[in-house]
């Protein structure tokens, strides 16, 4: 495993194991997450990549019989987000997430983006308006929706909905943005839009993305982690991992021999 000392660490996964009841899904995973870089998690279905992603914002806490073992340290203060005394709600305020299927709330476009601010108790109208506009601009959606902010978000197209969900996650200015196969439910054109957007976003954000699409990982991600059956097999820069993989399992997967 290579670690790059020229880059700032934004988070660090250390010896992380995770289980659903008796079933172990992650097995002592360790990896760095670099600031202002895109890290992709790839691997065949059931390898634990989505499970790993959902550890970052403690989504597993919503369900019974889940167990974390190990640490995810949030830099610079090296706070372990998995610690028992850390409130998962606080973690989710610092780490945003975009889901596989666009999931706008049945509210207006404006209220969708404002949601995160509202649940934090932000009341100031002008502040919310500014932030909504800024987030929609960052998500590349502003020009398309600026004249219809009060109309229902569900009337948008799938690709627009997903960009809205990205804007919604950005509105609270999280430290890390988690993307769980954000384009798997979208058509190729919307997918291209989102990929360009993600590349654009890394200027300001640290991004972790789960993807099934190897081209997407090699095109957009700076670092890629290949996972298999709950183990982290290989972590490297995307360039190296996709051209000169060290592990035969990685090679088999990226050349399409399984998965």
């Amino acid at each position: 495993m290579t670690t790059n000392t020229n880059l700032n660490l934004r988070a660090e996964v250390k010896d992380l194991s995770f289980s659903y009841g008796p079933k172990k899904v992650l097995n002592r995973v360790s990896m760095p997450i670099y600031e202002n870089r895109i890290t992709a998690l790839i691997g065949p279905s059931g390898c634990g990549k989505t499970t790993l992603l959902r550890c970052f914002n403690r989504m597993h806490d919503l369900y019974a019989a889940t167990n974390y073992d190990g640490e995810i340290l949030l830099h610079p203060e090296k706070r372990n987000v998995l610690a028992r005394d850390v409130d998962p709600m606080e973690v989710r305020m610092r780490i945003g997430m975009v889901f596989q299927k666009p999931n706008p709330f049945p509210k207006s476009i404006f209220e969708n983006v404002a949601y995160g601010l509202r649940v934090r108790g932000v009341r100031k109208r002008s502040f919310i308006e500014d932030r909504v506009e800024k987030s929609l601009q960052q998500a590349g959606l502003w020009s398309e929706v600026k004249d219809r902010l009060p109309s229902p978000a569900t009337a948008l197209s799938g690709g627009q909905q997903q960009r809205l969900c990205i804007a919604r996650a950005l509105a609270t200015e999280p430290e890390i943005l988690l993307l769980d196969e954000p384009t798997s439910a979208l058509d190729p054109i919307s997918t291209t839009h989102i990929e360009e957007l993600i590349t654009e976003l890394k200027k300001d954000w640290t991004i972790v993305i789960v993807t099934h699409n190897l081209h997407q990982a090699s095109r957009t991600a700076d670092y890629t982690a290949f996972m298999y059956l709950g183990d982290l097999i290989e972590f490297d820069t995307s360039d190296k991992l996709f051209t000169t993989p060290r592990d035969p399992r990685t090679e088999n997967y990226i050349t399409g021999r399984f998965g």
């Binding site: 989710r92 889901f99 999931n103």
Partner: peptide, 27 residues
């Protein structure tokens, strides 16, 4: 109410109570 809507709300840092009153009931 679809689970992914509730997860969307939780992921934004909402509490269970906020999720119920702002997402589940309106939906």
């Amino acid at each position: 109410v679809p689970g992914h809507l509730k997860e969307g709300s939780f992921a934004l840092g909402a509490s269970r109570f906020q999720t119920i009153f702002r997402v589940v009931i309106p939906t």
